[in-house]
Structure formats: C-alpha cells, structure tokens
C-alpha cells in the first residue's frame, strides 16, 4: 500500500512538472513534424501527389499548406495568397478537366511571372474597408486613388537581397459595402528563381497606419506543391 502511495505521489509530482513545462515541450515537438506552421522541417513530400483542379485549388487555398498567409494588426487583417501558375490556370479554365495541351500552352503564357492575391480586410467583417475610420470625404477619394494607382510602388518582393518591384497590379474595386479590398499582383520571375531560401513580400501600409507588412515564404513552401492532374 505504501508503495502505491509512493508511486501516486511521484506520478503526481511528475505530472505537475510536465504540465508546467508543457508549452516548451509542445513547441519543440511541433517544430519538428507535420503540424509545424513554418514548414521548415516538413517531412511530407507533396510533389508526387496528383490532384484534380478542384482539389488542387482547395489545397492551394488551405492556409495549413503555407501558401496563404494572414496577419492581424488591431482591427485590420492582411492576407496574401501565393498563386502558382497551375492555380491561375485552374481559375481561368473553371473546369475540373484540363487537357495536357491546354495546360502546356497556358503555362508557357503565364510562366514568366509569379502571382499573388493580396487582401486588406476589416477583421470584424463588418463595414466598408475604404470608409473605415474616415476623417473626411476627401480622404475617401484619396484612398480610392491610392489603391487604384499609387499603391503598386509600395509593394515589392525581396529575394536573395534583390528587390523585385510589383510589375502587375490590379485593384479589384468592390462598389458595394465590402469589408475587404483585393489586389491582384504579379512579379517578374528572376533568372535563378529556384535558388533562394526565402521570399519576402513587403507592403508599407500608409492608409491604415499599420506600418510595414511582411509575409515570408520558404523555398519549401513554394516548391513542395502537388501536381495538377490532367485528362
């Protein structure tokens, strides 16, 4: 019986210590396997997986796979979706059966750029982003003008110490009350596009005064992507 009590007490003490240190252990384990958000040590090889267009689109849009990133600062969220060429093709074709010929010709057409969707969102999901914390009507017009024509120069990608300017920019204007704004972006692909460790997207937010917004993609995140299944 004494043995039982002794074991119970030791068990309790161990549990207490383990629980108190739980966060450290959890973080350490999480960093080394599948659920690591940074994907630095991801062990899954996705390259050999083949997905149909609809599955492929879902995979790309799933933030757990690292191509969609989001950051909330106060009442504003910023979200960036990297769009591989095949994803753009899926969106353009709008079908679940893409022939190898179409895929090949579309790839040739789109392959010299890399594409992103950047969103600025009111985190509570209510109201109109462009009118958020508006001080005057004049300010509204300035915001529209900035988003449509001037914002492009405040966006860049840094890769191997090179700053790549935003070459394609389109502000998707929502004329109704919308808590977000979407910007379609394109950057010219570099000559040695596969030789980098990280790519960092940079935007300096001057409209809502949240400062420099960065999203970093690792090489693994951008290349460990399933293949698109064709007919």
């Amino acid at each position: 019986m004494h043995k039982f009590i002794y074991i119970s007490v030791v068990f309790l003490a161990t549990s207490l210590i383990a629980c108190k240190r739980g966060n450290i252990s959890e973080a350490g384990q999480a960093g080394s396997f599948l659920f690591n958000k940074n994907n630095e040590t991801r062990l899954v090889n996705n390259i050999n997986t083949q997905l149909s267009p609809s599955e492929y689109v879902q995979w790309i849009q799933n933030s757990e796979n690292g191509l969609k990133k989001e950051k909330k600062i106060d009442e504003i969220s910023f979200s960036l979706q990297h769009k591989p060429t095949d994803y753009v093709i899926c969106q353009e074709e709008q079908t679940n059966t893409i022939s190898p010929q179409v895929l090949k010709s579309k790839r040739a057409e789109l392959n010299d750029m890399e594409y992103y969707d950047f969103k600025i969102i009111l985190a509570n999901g209510e109201g109109e982003l462009l009118k958020h914390n508006l001080e005057s009507n004049d300010q509204y017009d300035k915001r529209v003008k900035y988003f449509a024509f001037e914002m492009q120069k405040d966006i860049a990608i840094v890769q191997n110490n090179d700053t790549i300017p935003c070459a394609l920019f389109h502000f998707e204007r929502a004329y109704d009350v919308s808590p977000f704004s979407t910007f379609l972006l394109g950057f010219a692909k570099q000559k040695n596009d596969t030789k980098y460790n990280e790519k960092t997207f940079i935007y300096h937010d001057k409209v809502f005064k949240k400062g420099i917004i960065k999203f970093t993609y690792t090489h693994n995140e951008l290349h460990n992507i399933p293949q698109l299944k064709t007919l």
């Binding site: 019986m1 039982f4 009590i5 119970s8 007490v9 309790l12 549990s15 207490l16 629980c19």
Partner: peptide, 19 residues
Amino acid sequence: TIINGGIVTALLAFAIYYM
C-alpha cells in the same frame, strides 16, 4: 486504504485546481 485513497484523491484534486 480508504485514508490513503482519500489523500491521493485530495492531492489530485489540488493539483488540478492548482493547474
């Protein structure tokens, strides 16, 4: 045995409460 069991349960309850 009952007393010992009680002590262990109390310790366990205290540990959970503490956490």
